[in-house]
Each structure stands twice: as C-alpha cells, then as structure tokens.
Amino acid sequence: MVQLFKFLLKSHKSPGRAHFRPTFLDTLRLAVRGGHGGNGLPKYGGVGGQGGCVYFVAKEGLTLRKVVQGLKDKRVAASSGEDSSKASIFGRRGVDQKIEVPVGVQVYDDRQKLIADLDQNEATCIVAGGGIGGCPATDFIGRPGENRTVNLDLKLIADVGLVGFPNAGKSTLLKAVSNAKPKIAAYPFTTIRPQIGTIEYKDLRSITVADLPGLIEGAHANFGMGHKFLKHVERTRLLVLMVDIFGFQLSPRHPHRDCVANIYALNRELELYDPSLLEKPSVLLLNKMDKDGAHDILTKVKPIINDLASGLDQCPEELRPQQVLKFESIVPISAINSTKITQVKSQLRRTLVRLAEKQFLADEEQIKEQLKQRVGVVGPKIT
C-alpha cells in the first residue's frame, strides 16, 4: 500500500507557476554535425556526393526560445552525401540543414572563439561543413562531416538601453513610453529578464527601448547576473542612465548612497565591464521628481552632475571611475507623470536624430577622403 501511494505521488506532476517558468533565453548550446561524404566507385572512377552542411540564418522577430521549440533536441545534423553507383557516377550532395536564429546572435565554438556575428537580417554562417565525397584522393572513401558544439549568445539590438540600479523606475518608464508590459512593483529586482518596448510616434517613426534588469555593484565581475545583463548594452545606440533622485539602498546591510554616488557607481560598472561603453552617447534621467523634497535635492546636486569630472575628488575611491560619462542631456522626470513622459520621448528622439546626423556627416567625410586617395589630388573646379 505504501509503495502504491509513493507511485501515485511521483506520477502526479503539478505545472510550475507561470512567473517561475523562464520565458527569455539569451544563450543556447547546440551540437551540430555536417553530413558524411558518400563513397566513390573505384571501378568506374565514380565520386561520392559531399555531405550536407549545417548553417544559421538570422531572421528578425525570432527568439532563442522559438529556436529550441523548433528542434526535437539540441542536436542538429545534415544528411549524408549519396554513394556513387553505376546509375549515378556522381553521387548527389547531402541536404543542408538550415536553422533560423534571432538577429543579434553571436556564434562561438567550445573554446569561446567567435565564429560569426549575425547582427543583420539574413546574415548567414556555416557552423558545420559536410565531409567530402569519396574520390581518388581519399581512396574513394567518403569523409565524415564536421562535428562540434557551438554556443549561441544573443545580444539584444535596440536604439536605447535603460541602465540603472534596482527600483529606479526603469520598468515604469518603459511601460509609460512604449507598448511593453513589464512587471512593476515597489521592491527591487522586479525585472529579472530584459524587456523590449517600442516607442511609436505620430509620424510612424519608432524607437526600440531595452529595459535591462537592475545592476548591482560588482556586475562587471559577473556578480548577480552582471555579464548576462551588461552584454545587452553593447548593441544599443544610446545609453539612458536612470537614477532615483533620493538615492538607493540595496539592503539594510548596504550603505545608502545619494543620486550622485549612484551615477558614479553606474559609470564605474560600465567602465570596468567594457571601457568602450563610455564612448557611447548617453542621457541621464533623474526620476521621482514628483515627490516632496526632490527639487531641493536637484538644486543641490545639479552643479556636480553637470560636471562629473570636477566632483571625482569627493567621490569614494571604490566608486571612482577613471573616465566619466558625458551626457547629451540631463532630464529630471517623473515616470508616472504623462507630461514628463512626453518630454522624455521627445528628448530621446531628438538625441537619436542628432547622433544620426553626426554619423552621416562622418561617413560623408570618410567617403570623400577615400575618393581623394583613389583619384589623387583634386584639380580646380570647373565653373
């Protein structure tokens, strides 16, 4: 009777709670194998067909979760080439195996060597080549295809990346400015996976915004889930740092830091992870300006925020960055105030347009310089 009761308990599996089930996947490990080459036919000099290959194609609108759902297991193999025969001296080539992956995927081998960076729609890379067919050089014996394990690392591609410590109001802002529906609550670490939203404008222009889960100190060294989140910042065109004007305290065991100290701390985490991130254009949002006392704090800290380099001497050594961010603009906001939200949307658009114009002029000058080098010294203009 006891054994029967144990059996019934094991056989009943209750479904996991929805908020515990992972929905966002940004890493995936696959075993891939190219097809075996077909054997040749020595008597007639027949050549076996080459084995098929496994290749990835980047497609917009896909997720790694959909990729996994489309596979029976995490093994992908192409078919083998056809053997040479009397009826077909040249064996047919094996069928290739195409796997569609999201745009923004980087493909690494087991030694963490980058194989391909699929950062554009329809970008393609072969990850496992097929073996050559049997021929005189191989004693008419087909060769096995390439067999290895590859790691897919997805880095989100967005116009804007929201960066900040937990409970700064990033998810509230994302929900207010876009069509995203992130989870929102009045406690830290509400966002546990990146969220993507799209800001729609009346003239049909759209801007994508990525809300990254709150960082903690030490994220650059992969404390918490540092690297898992910071890697998504690399592909954004504009960094938006969001801080609470009243400061932030991670827990009772951690010290409370004012908004200036938090700006330096975020600056340092980005610098230690990848110094090139500091070269990205950035905007600073000072949130929760609707609360009492916010404007008094802003008046006090505004001179320091406008010139972060001048305040480095007063910054604690553990938070002090080597290079400070240069903000395109500093915007006091309230993520729950519709008027302020409209200002944020307009500011983000103006900043991105200005950056695009700068990039266009830089590209134009580069093209002119390349033309001069090809043609030589430009002669006088004909009028």
Rank of each mutant, 00 (worst) to 15 (best):
L162N: 03
L371G: 00
H220S: 15
I141T: 15
G34K: 14
V163N: 02
C315L: 04
Q322R: 14
G214K: 06
I341M: 07
T339D: 14
E217W: 00
F165C: 04
I207E: 08
D211R: 00
T23E: 14
L156F: 02
M289H: 01
V243P: 00
C315A: 09
I141M: 09
L212C: 05
H36P: 01
D110V: 06
K202C: 09
A221T: 07
L230Q: 02
H12I: 12
V377G: 12
R253G: 13
L162W: 00
D363W: 04
N287H: 02
L348H: 08
S334Y: 00
Q314F: 08
Q322K: 15
L71E: 13
D73A: 11
V95E: 05
P182Q: 09
V57K: 13
A87F: 01
S88N: 12
L152Y: 08
E328G: 03
L371K: 07
G169V: 00
M289Y: 03
K113N: 15
I196E: 05
A123E: 13
Q106P: 01
P102E: 01
G37F: 02
Y201F: 14
K202G: 08
V57P: 08
I305C: 10
A137I: 03
V67M: 03
I196G: 02
K183R: 08
L266R: 00
I330L: 04
S11E: 14
V160D: 02
Y273R: 03
K170V: 00
L239F: 08
Q373C: 02
